[in-house]
Design a protein around this nucleic acid. Structure first.
Length: 868
RNA sequence: GCCUCGAUGGCGGAAUUGGUAGACGCGGCGGAUUCAAAAUCCGUUUCUGGUGACAGAGUGGGAGUUCGAUUCUCCCUCGAGGCACCA
């Protein structure tokens, strides 16, 4: 064994052996328990960032731990390769998105491999290849035939200058990011997945996922947003073109129907469109509402505005005339795009009524009383006994619901209904670098599916987009085709699919990544799926994870899979953050400096008080800790870390600095600390293995001191097993191994049994660290005399008898305050413990002049004496 | 605006079911080794008062439940993630 810890040699040797033996390549071995460990696959943005390293290290630790449990572990890797950044890079550098993407993949694969991941690389794929997306197109055609996909108009961000549709990210303060033009909402036809058909199941089957964080399930429940309420119709005699009709609204508070004083419709509502056509003032307001992007965060934070249409509807119970308003706070995408406004009991209606002087009529007695004076109080929204509601007076929520429901049903003006907040998923994108939608538009046959034997519709790869609409729409060689049904000239769809579609089923494709006869080989898919452990960023808590759950159910209903849910256990990892430093420029802008180029100054206590740019020695402003990003220039390059310290140090630091679900603050000195620890482990093992092979450990004849060392070994096993296997708290598992190392380094090395004990201790360290720092563990294991590699070794077994102690330390409290300690025999009786505590000199001192009211004894823990 | 989560020493974080707050690491301070430095090792390190023994305070702020609260309940402040075309 080398005396110096040399990560470069150790890591190269370990990786060479894993490659030589195809150590992580797996197949459908019968009778071996499987474990499918999946980390969210990366977008090939150029090079690895620390978020990737963290994600894949967490996955690798779990995968390697499960392998040591004797399971057949599948850990695949691939590339989520379609998306906007490739188009932006293409425009900036004049390269085709395809070649940019493929070269990124090549570079990032090498980087990932240098981390020493236990990945089955034979299953790798990229979603931008026809071999992958042909099955997406195939599934599309199946779902289209089943009616799961349909076409309707949707609203997009339209840049009137660049004449193109923009993503929400490309709309900044309501303006186009390149043109600076004011964005407008525009309706275009798009294809939709009927995810709302699965809303109920997506909601209820969350209860079958005990291995998901409660937080994520709550977010998904609220996103799906099931509301039980009533659809109410407000009849009108005449609209702006002189016709009678009914305005439909959905409400969760039908009990407040008698308090409705106006109705409000969205600017896109048909009634508004119609009214605007004959009223220039209204039309101007509608146009104003259509300015700006479609992102809900922007719409919800804008000033509440409205305009009366001059139209009136009739109250369905009282026949009273109520004005119809157009309001920018009514969302066309929820319910009916129209609301009945009850200002007395709804906060937004309340604010709107005050702004526009509309009547407010309280109809529920709340804990704030019978009146609703301004300002708004949350109590106004409470459910309670009805007042000012004619025949419904005195009813509570439930009886009012029934009674009002009955009246509406009798008049055929309303009925109970369930409404979901979840909307159908629009997947059409007017972009080039995505999976083509396999549809052909024919003047006589309509929307015709591309027949299965003509799939895939191949995306041409040598195209450089220019930011002015989709290049496919300007390529006759792509869109000119003949109708598969009638043979007449037709036009191929030029929109591509939302890139969320590729990532909604990739986990299934890994089971049989090269299968040519179908989307999945059903035998392989059912062998591996569902994924036992899924790991990824919390930012995917809703969209990606909901879409993937939805697709899993679609694939199930297509007969491709047997399971109901894709991911049994979910771990959501936190962000990687780092300190930021900047200087203010004369123009008010900020220049950001990388932490690597900055030197910090500390006060006497070690608190950071100032920072200077290393190169010129002049001060910089400390900007606070933020997510690593290009814009703040606070990213640390994983590659240089690996080159400087090795992959094991990098992995160890990332796992030690914080638990996986919390944010992780980068610290150069922390990395050095991790490296120092690995050097200590190596040094102790190196000293130990210089001697002759130790004799066998005889656990029955250990001295008290040796027993204490052995207890430390098994305490570490206990802690690490629980932390890695159960709680995914790798930081405390590592702390346990560090504590063990502190003991082993100080343990005497005199007798044969001392050496045998150290052998057990070092083997334990190697095994407990094996999932986290696999390379050094590989080297240690060999050096400790094992011929089989550490990846084939089983996880260490806890010897409970090593933990047994003869005496225990109890805590003594007086009135809940710590006043002393008490050493008692492990099996001392309650009475004996209490008696001993009462004699403690501090207890006597602190209870002097008081009478003891109560003594609480918590066995094995503490004694609390209550006195006053 | 709405949904979700979080806040503990100088810093990252730990604390089983409500039972010793600060494990482990970083940083700081003091010392050993060295011609010197790096590396390594030893000691110390929540704050306040005290030479000290010791005492008091302390887990974002305020209230509550309890013999006992970082942990449970309510209110507030600040920060983070998401909001359907970033992935």
């Amino acid at each position: 064994m080398q005396e110096q810890y040399s990560p470069r040699d150790i890591e190269a040797a370990a990786q060479a052996e894993w490659n030589r033996t195809n150590a992580f390549q797996v197949n459908e071995t019968p009778d071996q328990e499987t474990f499918y460990c999946l980390s969210m696959f990366p977008y090939p943005s150029g090079k690895l960032h620390m978020g990737h390293v963290r994600n894949y290290t967490i996955g690798d630790v779990i995968a390697r731990y499960q392998r040591m449990q004797g399971k057949n572990v599948l850990q695949p890797m691939g590339w989520d390769a379609f998306g906007m950044p490739a188009e932006n890079a293409a425009m900036n550098n004049n390269v085709a998105p395809a070649s940019w993407t493929y070269s990124n993949i090549d570079y990032m694969r090498t980087q990932l491999q240098s981390l020493g991941l236990a990945v089955d690389w034979s299953r790798e794929f990229a979603t931008c290849t026809p071999e992958y997306y042909r099955w997406e197109q195939w599934l599309f055609t199946r779902l289209f035939q089943r009616g799961v996909i349909y076409r309707k108009n949707g609203t997009v961000n339209w840049d009137p200058v660049d004449q193109t549709v923009l993503a929400n990210e490309q709309v900044i303060d309501g303006k186009g990011w390149r043109s600076g033009a004011v964005i407008e909402k525009r309706e275009i036809p798009m294809y939709y997945f009927r995810i709302t058909d699965y809303a109920e199941e997506l909601l209820t089957s969350l209860d079958d996922l005990p291995g998901w964080p409660e937080q994520v399930k709550t977010m998904q429940r609220n996103w799906i947003g099931k509301s039980v309420g009533m659809e109410v119709q407000f009849p009108y005699d005449v609209d702006s073109i002189g016709e009678a009709g009914r305005l439909k609204v959905f409400t969760t508070r039908p009990d407040t129907l008698m308090g409705a004083t106006y109705v409000a419709v969205a600017a896109e509502h048909p009634l508004a469109t119609q009214a605007g056509a004959t009223n220039p003032q209204l039309q101007a307001f509608i146009d104003e509402c259509k300015r700006g992007g479609v992102a809900e965060a922007d719409i919800a934070t804008q000033e509440k505005k409205g305009l009366a249409t001059g139209l009136f509807v009739r109250h369905p119970v009282t026949d009273e005339k109520l004005p119809v308003w157009i309001a920018n706070y009514v969302l066309m995408t929820y319910g009916e795009g129209a609301v009945m406004a009850v200002p007395a009991h709804d906060e937004r209606d309340f604010a709107f009524a005050h702004a526009y002087d509309l009547p407010i009529r309280p109809v529920v007695r709340t804990s704030a009383g019978d009146e609703t004076p301004a300002p708004w109080q949350d109590a106004y929204a409470e459910k309670g006994v009805l007042i000012n509601s004619y025949e419904f007076d005195g009813m509570d929520f439930d009886s009012a619901l029934t009674a009002i429901g009955d009246v509406l049903k009798q008049k055929q003006l309303g009925e109970a209904r369930t409404q979901f907040r979840l909307r159908d998923w629009g997947i059409s994108r007017q972009r080039y670098w995505g999976c083509p939608i396999p549809i052909i538009h024919c003047d006589s046959c309509g929307d015709v599916l591309v027949p299965e034997d003509q799939l895939p519709v191949v995306l041409p790869e040598d195209v450089v987009p220019d930011g002015a609409g989709s290049p496919l729409a300007r390529m006759p060689e792509f869109y000119e085709c003949s109708c598969p049904t009638c043979g007449n000239p037709a036009r191929r769809e030029t929109d591509t699919m939302d890139t969320f579609v590729e990532s909604s089923w990739y986990f299934a494709r890994y089971a049989s990544p090269h299968y040519q006869q179908g989307l999945v080989d059903p035998k392989a898919a059912n062998h591996w799926l569902p994924v036992d452990q899924y790991i990824g960023g919390i930012e995917h808590a809703i969209l990606h994870l909901l879409y993937a759950r939805f697709f899993h159910k679609l694939m199930r209903d297509e007969g491709l899979l047997d399971s109901d849910e894709p991911f049994k256990n979910l771990l959501t990892q936190g962000m990687v953050i780092a300190e930021t430093y900047y200087r203010l420029e004369a123009n008010g802008g900020k220049t950001w400096f990388n932490p690597a180029d900055v030197t910090v100054e500390r006060d006497a206590k070690g608190k950071i008080v100032a920072a200077r740019l290393t190169s010129d020695g002049e001060p910089v402003v400390i900007g606070g800790v933020e997510k690593m990003s290009k814009s703040k220039n606070n990213g640390v390059d994983p590659q240089s870390m690996i080159e400087q310290y090795g992959a094991d140090t990098c992995r160890l630091f990332m796992m030690f600095a914080s638990p996986p679900d919390m944010s992780l603050e980068w610290s150069d000195t922390g990395v050095e600390g991790a490296h120092r620890f690995l050097r200590r482990v190596w040094r102790l093992a190196s000293q130990h293995t210089q001697g002759s092979r130790p004799t066998a450990l005889v656990t029955t004849s250990l001295t008290d001191e040796q027993k204490a060392v052995r207890r430390s070994i098994h305490l570490a096993i206990k802690q690490a097993s629980q932390d890695i296997g159960h709680n995914h708290k790798f930081n405390t598992a590592i702390a346990a191994v560090m504590t063990l190392m502190n003991v082993l380094e100080k343990a005497p090395q005199v007798s044969d049994q001392d050496r045998a004990l150290l052998q057990e201790g070092l083997e334990t360290v190697a095994l407990l660290l094996a999932p986290i720092t696999p390379h050094i563990s590989h080297g240690l294991w060999q050096a400790l005399g094992h011929s089989d590699p550490v990846i084939s070794a089983p996880w260490p077994q806890l010897d409970e008898s090593a933990l047994v102690q003869d005496t225990l330390q109890l805590v003594i409290q007086v009135n809940g305050k710590l006043r002393g300690h008490l050493e008692v025999a492990a099996h001392a009786s309650r009475e004996a413990v209490e008696a001993a505590a009462r004699q403690n000199e501090n207890v006597v001192r602190f209870t002097e002049g008081l009478s003891i009211r109560k003594v609480i004894v918590v066995p094995g823990k503490l004694v609390n004496i209550v006195a006053n």
